[in-house]
Nucleic acid binder design. Structure first.
Length: 428
RNA sequence: GGAGACGUGGCUGAGCGGUCGAAAGCGCCUCACUGCUAACGAGGUAAGCCUUAACCGGCUUCAUGGGUUCGAAUCCCAUCGUCUCCGCCA
């Protein structure tokens, strides 16, 4: 059973009110720290009062049990009846306070790193790196929809017929290309000591709380009639994997490569990316998830590492990209820092997000109760990080557009040829 | 879908109204022992909260939430979870 804790320690919160305030402000999250502190004062006071009464009870228990004189015994029992009533009063009040306290604790934002740029939303993310030349063509280039439709790699019309809005079929070489990418990614990340995992995609609600997707964000998730949820990323299942466990510290860091379908309702994105394979309700994603010891420097190092992994993967494919440091307003409740890797999409003449790498300190592991014993034997919450490894079919968009030829054929990146079986996709 | 069993510490597992934060074993730590290691021996070893400079001390926790009781791991109810058998099934 998961008894999830809260993102930050209440003691830490009380001692660092200003930090929390600044964090909320930087993340553009409305959070009233003072209300929480007042509530916590109440909670403490009631706890102390109730504890005093219980201490009385506990002391009397021994005496009653050992009393040999029946009359004395009855007298003590009568006395304790009064104590019981007083205790019940405090407990009822405490219960009410605790309910509010817990709800509020779930909304305390994690503190973003100093290096996170200030800004209100993704338009203010800061470019920190570009790689490759933006692809130029000496012919009239096509977008991914035309290219892929002409080569029978995708069928969007029938996709809409079968699934509805945002539906698609990947067909023939479109499907083959996905398999090639998955297999290449499997080899690439295995060589970096990631353990591949195919996780459950239907999960219990608790896992979404644990990873920080709930309580906010309910409307973007698919739900089953049993009250379970379809995951939007295998991060959710992989983080649940070790929930409520005490890990061997010599087993850390754990590097997992999740592979799963991902389901997103895209409820808040109605006017956006209405055509093609950029924004769809279901897709496949390989995902990097790491659990490590509770050490900020280590988290930072591994964060750079998983971000570098995806960059390296894209570099091998040869697609121009840039990396941005997400600004405060573009960070989730639990994220300390996040990088997005964005690929060049020639027809749109802009970079489009392909994946993001974040770290959380112990935000998720507290909620999921994932601990380990450090060298001195103390139980500590682990740190967690995750990053996209590669999403399909979104990656196809920039791949086919960047590698298109004047005759509408598509050149396959060298590294993929071995997995794909041929070096070009063209009309027969 | 039908029937039943069960949920206790890092793990296995006993306890079924007060002497139980909980036997025993495993694991782990310390000491002793031994060419070295292993085995054997002695002792220690749950977590969280409050208070404290620290020691001490107090409280909570035997899935969760209610109830009965002066008192609940233990009795009652509900919920959640797990397992087994039957049925169905890729």
């Amino acid at each position: 059973m998961i008894h999830y804790s809260y993102m930050l320690d209440i003691k830490f919160i009380r001692e660092n009110k200003d930090l929390i305030n600044q964090a909320a402000k930087k993340k553009r999250i409305d959070f009233r720290i003072d209300e929480l502190v007042i509530l916590d004062d109440k909670r403490r006071k009631l706890m102390t009062l109730a504890e005093e009464k219980r201490a009385l009870q506990n002391a009397a228990n021994d005496k009653i049990a050992k009393a040999e004189d029946a009359e004395k015994r009855m007298g003590m029992i009568e006395e304790m009846k009064v104590v019981k009533i007083e205790l019940e009063k405090y407990e009822t009040e405490l219960k009410e306070v605790m309910k509010n306290w817990q709800n509020m604790m779930l909304l305390v934002p994690n503190i973003p790193d100093m290096s996170v740029p200030d800004g209100k939303d993704d338009s203010e993310n800061q470019e920190i790196k570009t790689w490759g030349e933006k692809t130029k063509f000496d012919f009239e280039s096509k977008d991914h929809i035309d290219l892929m439709t002409n080569l029978n790699m995708v069928d969007l019309e029938r996709g809409a017929k079968v699934h509805g809005f945002r539906g698609y079929f990947l067909t023939g070489d479109g499907a083959r290309l996905c398999f090639a990418i998955w297999n290449f990614a499997l080899d690439f990340f295995s060589a970096k000591d990631f353990i591949p995992i195919i996780p459950p995609t239907i999960v219990r609600r608790i896992n979404l709380f644990g990873t920080g997707y709930l309580p906010q964000g309910e409307e973007d998730l698919y739900k089953t009639q049993d009250g379970d949820y379809l995951i939007g990323t295998s991060e959710v299942s992989l983080m649940g994997l070790h929930a409520d466990e005490v890990l061997q510290n010599d087993s850390l860091p754990k590097r997992y490569l999740g592979f799963s379908p991902c389901y997103r309702r895209e409820a808040g994105a109605h006017g956006k990316d209405v055509r093609g394979l950029i924004r769809v309700n279901e897709f496949y994603k390989l995902e990097q998830v790491i659990l490590c010891e509770a050490n900020h420097e280590l988290s930072v190092k591994l964060h750079e590492e998983i971000n570098r992994n995806i960059e390296e993967f894209i570099e091998i494919l040869g697609i121009p990209y840039r990396t941005v440091a997400n600004c405060g307003g573009d960070l989730g409740l639990g994220q300390v820092k996040k990088y997005d890797v964005e690929l060049w999409v020639p027809k749109e003449e802009k970079y489009r997000e392909i994946g993001s790498a974040s770290y959380f300190h112990d935000f998720q592991t507290r909620r999921l109760n994932i601990r380990y014993r450090d060298e001195s034997g103390v139980l500590r919450y682990a740190h967690s990080l995750n990053s996209t490894a590669i999403p399909t079919p979104r990656i196809l968009v920039s791949m086919v557009e960047n590698f298109q030829n004047s005759d509408g054929s598509i050149t396959i990146p060298k590294a993929l040829v071995k997995y794909f079986g041929k070096d070009i996709i063209k009309k027969p």
